[in-house]
Design a protein around this nucleic acid. Structure first.
Lengths: 308, 308
DNA sequence: CTTTGATATGAATTTAATTCAAATTTATCA
DNA sequence: TGATAAATTTGAATTAAATTCATATCAAAG
């Protein structure tokens, strides 16, 4: 009666703490997951979770099954990779370009995991800052861009990774620190501190401030910590992925606010040639990114893969 | 897409070598298993078996998934036992009586497996030969009888284990050694060598010879090897479970023939009080017996558990 | 007290698994 | 060499399970 999909469900619940978010992560409705967990508890005649408005907490029995999940799922992944190798010899290289500054934080562990899974594939990060990373794909200087989608997809292909919330970042004593959430108007006459990227590629500007005709200043910094320092010292405010600022928020160095009623969400994709995107180890890199980020970055929502 | 039931299917195929027998073992139709394997091969886009009238042989990819099955299934069993323990502390004793001589051969390894799985339960074999083992249950001198079913089940409960074929065992130079199979008439005026058990509890006599009004002699021996020696030296013939004589047959010490067109089949059950039969570790013993015997005894057919 | 957020539940719908019936293939036997 | 047996495959039909839908329930927050 226990199946691998149950193990995946338990892992998603562990990562999110909420039934609804876990369901989203594994592409079910909250109701389906509720039924699934209930059926599992009835089968084993034991309670797996303590439930409430706080979400779900594992009982010792639930934890035991989660331990099993954590033990089995990597073995399954590994054997599925071995099947891929049995089909045909895999070797090659993946030159990755990031179109997203804060992604550096999680990409290093992802590359470590990938190197262990595919020692016969050479994976590397293309150094430096690139104003138009997708052009490097055409020039043969990169194999994969991780970031948003290019304006013109052309002959390129892509796989969606996940979406994440962009939070307004303000100093703790900001005049609007008590607001539940920020709206476009709250940025009026503020200095927006961003990475040195064209405005049309900054989501807060492109999707919120420009459409609302907000007047604001601009200032740039290349490092996240520099942006945090400027915000904390009241030189301006910022808008960054929640995961990139979590440490600073936890230490009350800055405050984070959702933008708009539903939050401002942005999507990450892996873009490359159709040939590269359909390679088995590229597909696996996409899965490794999803799994690793799902486990470590709070609040992200995984996106379903596209059949190419 | 890979689920635990697939792993169980692969294990059953490994144990039987035939799709039909494997399907029987996991309580599916042969067609259902064929569909299942086909769907798995389409999902992974790789062939898992070499097929033919010879049955199925694992390809390297199939073997890889079988390796995964052999790795994961014990871990799953173990964690399910832990859930049982989390429900309530398990301890107790199981005093086993065998109503079947040749079962000794496989029961020792089964008890070893059980002791590792349930160190807190005392399991032991009740020594000696018993003319009416089920009476020991009433007398409180045993907890479980492994063998056939008692004539009167009364307040006892039981779980089916498996069924096995009883083969006619003859010396290699027997006048009828070329027959495809034996029938009741082939036993006429032969000396039937059996364990020292009442006739009404010897299946070949009860179900074949008696109903056909066959005249035959009787001779008893307590040990299987003694029976084999008597048969080999043409002192008579025997009728025993296929697994109990496999070694002697392989070494061409004796010959085995099916009895009747469809073979003579007998069932094994675990019988005890309703209370004992529903204890978690007794249920698990039943599963351990099934799994261990399925893996090691050729030709047996597992029986489905009863809901009590 | 209302609203929000989180889970549970029963019925309906959709999907997947399984069975049924027959076909196909290969090996064995007379 | 043809018939038979044994083993698997295949498509359609049936059954079972999974999932969604719509709503209810409960607890916490405002």
């Amino acid at each position: 009666m226990l199946e691998i999909r149950h193990l995946k469900s338990l892992k998603a619940i562990a990562e999110t703490g909420k039934l609804g978010l876990a369901a989203e992560r594994i592409f079910l409705t909250q109701s389906a997951l509720s039924h699934q967990i209930r059926a599992l508890e009835m089968h084993y005649e034991i309670t797996l979770f303590k439930r409430g408005a706080h979400g779900l907490r594992f009982t010792p029995a639930g934890q035991r099954l989660l331990d099993l999940a954590n033990e089995l799922l990597p073995l399954i992944d590994k054997s599925e990779r071995d099947l891929v190798r049995l089909k045909s010899k895999q070797s090659g290289e993946l030159r990755i370009v990031l179109e997203c500054h804060t992604c550096f934080d999680w990409l290093t562990p992802v590359m470590d995991v990938f190197r262990r899974a595919w020692p016969e594939v050479e994976i590397d990060l293309v150094a430096g800052f690139h104003s138009d990373p997708w052009h490097l794909l055409h020039e043969g200087k990169a194999d994969l861009v991780i970031g948003g989608l290019p304006e013109k997809i052309g002959t390129l292909a892509h796989q969606p990774l996940f979406k994440f919330e962009i939070m307004a970042v303000i100093p703790p004593n900001h005049s609007k620190h008590k607001k539940a959430r920020f709206v476009a108007e709250d940025f009026t006459n503020e200095t927006l501190i961003t990475y040195p990227v064209p405005e049309e590629r900054i989501d807060i500007i492109r999707h919120v401030l420009k459409p609302a005709n907000i007047n604001f200043g601009r200032r740039t910094a290349e490092l996240t910590i520099a942006i945090m320092q400027l915000v904390a010292s009241r030189r301006g405010i910022a808008a960054l992925p929640s995961w990139g600022i979590q440490n600073y928020v936890d230490h009350e160095y800055v405050i984070a606010k959702s933008i708009g009623k539903k939050g401002l969400w942005s999507e990450l994709h892996a873009t490359g040639s159709a040939e590269t995107i359909t390679l088995p180890y590229t597909i696996d890199l996409v899965n490794i990114i999803k799994n690793t980020c799902a486990a470590h970055l709070k609040g992200i929502k995984l996106l379903n893969s596209i059949n190419i």
